[in-house]
C-alpha cells in the first residue's frame, strides 16, 4: 500500500557516507550476470520437501538458479511460495531433498554440518526481518560479533568502519532496545557486513519497518552490491523488486519469472509503497 505522505529527506548519516549512491538511476546490469560475471551461487534441480505427518509439503521444486557475483537479486513471491526456503538453502541453514547447490564452486548439498557451519562463518551472512540483535550487547558489540565469528583480524577497527558506513558510529554504545527499528536493522546489516563474507542474504529486511526506514535499508543493501558483494533479498513487496538487477519470482515452489525488472533497475529514491 502506497504511503500518502511525501517522503522525508534521506537520513543525513546514510547520505553522507554514500553520496549520490542511493539516488543513482539505472544501476546494475541485466539479470543473470553481475559486474564481474563470475557465478557465485548455483542451484541445479533443487527440490525441498518436508514431511508433515501423512502429507508432505514441497516448498521448492526443481529450481535452477545461477547468481553472479556483485549482483543485487530480489527473490519475489507471496507468502508460502518458498522464497525463505530458497534463502535458507543458499545460506547453508538447510539441505535440499534433491539437487545440488554450489557456492563459489563448492557443493553445499551434501556437506556435513561442520562444513555448512564454516560456510555460514566465511561465505554467507544473514540479515533477518526481525533484526535478531543480541539484546545484551551494544550496537558496536553486535557488529563486533560478526567480525569475531568470521575470524577477521582487527575486529574493533572493522567494527568502527562498518558502523560508520551505516551511519551509526554515534549510536555504537546504545543497546538494541534504545534504537529505533530502522537503526536496529542497520546494525543488523553492519553485523552482516562486518563478517566480510561475499554473499549477503536478507530475508524481508524491511518487513518490520516503515517506509522511510525501509528505504534507508534498501539503499544500504543496494550499495553493498555495487561494492562487490552478492546480495539476495527476499520480499513479497513487488515495489522493492524495482531496484534489483534481477528479479526471481517464485510461485508454489517454482520459479515463474527470472529477469531484470520491467524498465530496468530503478533508484532507491523512486520507491513508493
Amino acid at each position: 500500500m502506497r504511503e500518502a505522505v511525501p517522503p522525508d529527506p534521506p537520513d543525513p548519516a546514510v547520505a553522507a557516507s554514500a553520496p549520490g549512491l542511493a539516488d543513482a538511476p539505472g544501476l546494475a546490469a541485466s539479470g543473470g550476470d553481475g559486474a564481474d560475471g563470475a557465478i557465485r551461487i548455483e542451484l541445479s534441480g533443487v527440490t525441498r520437501r518436508y514431511d508433515a505427518g501423512e502429507t508432505g509439503v514441497t516448498a521448492l521444486e526443481d529450481v535452477d538458479l545461477r547468481v553472479a557475483a556483485s549482483s543485487f537479486v530480489v527473490i519475489l513471491g507471496p507468502s508460502g511460495c518458498g522464497k525463505t526456503t530458497l534463502l535458507n538453502l543458499i545460506g547453508a541453514l538447510d539441505t535440499p531433498t534433491t539437487g545440488t547447490i554450489r557456492l563459489d564452486g563448492a557443493d553445499l548439498s551434501r556437506a556435513s554440518p561442520r562444513v555448512r557451519r564454516e560456510i555460514r562463518r566465511h561465505t554467507v551472512s544473514f540479515v533477518f526481518q526481525s533484526f535478531n540483535l543480541f539484546p545484551a550487547l551494544t550496537a558496536r558489540e553486535n557488529v563486533q560479533f560478526g567480525a569475531e565469528v568470521a575470524g577477521r583480524a582487527g575486529s574493533e577497527d572493522v567494527t568502527g568502519q562498518v558502523l560508520d558506513g551505516v551511519g551509526l558510529s554515534r549510536r555504537g554504545d546504545h543497546f538494541p532496545h534504545q534504537l529505533s527499528g530502522g537503526e536496529q536493522q542497520r546494525v543488523a546489516i553492519a553485523r552482516a557486513l562486518a563478517t566480510g563474507n561475499p554473499i549477503l542474504l536478507a530475508d524481508e529486511p524491511t518487513g518490520e519497518l516503515d517506509f522511510h526506514s525501509g528505504v534507508q535499508i534498501l539503499g544500504l543493501l543496494r550499495r553493498q552490491a555495487a561494492d562487490g558483494q552478492t546480495v539476495l533479498v527476499v520480499t513479497h513487496n513487488r515495489e522493492i523488486a524495482r531496484i534489483a538487477d534481477r528479479v526471481v519470482e517464485l510461485s508454489s515452489g517454482r520459479i515463474v519469472a527470472d529477469g531484470p525488472p520491467p524498465g530496468g533497475p530503478r533508484a532507491v529514491s523512486e520507491l513508493h509503497w
Partner: peptide
C-alpha cells in the same frame, strides 16, 4: 511517520546498564 519497529525492543525490557559496559574482552 514514527518508525514502527522502535517500541518492540524496549518492551522486552532492560539492558545491563552502564555497569555492563565496562566488561573487558570480545562481544
Amino acid at each position: 511517520g514514527r518508525e514502527s519497529g522502535s517500541v518492540a525492543g524496549r518492551e522486552r525490557g532492560g539492558g545491563p546498564g552502564r555497569v555492563g559496559r565496562v566488561l573487558p574482552g570480545g562481544s
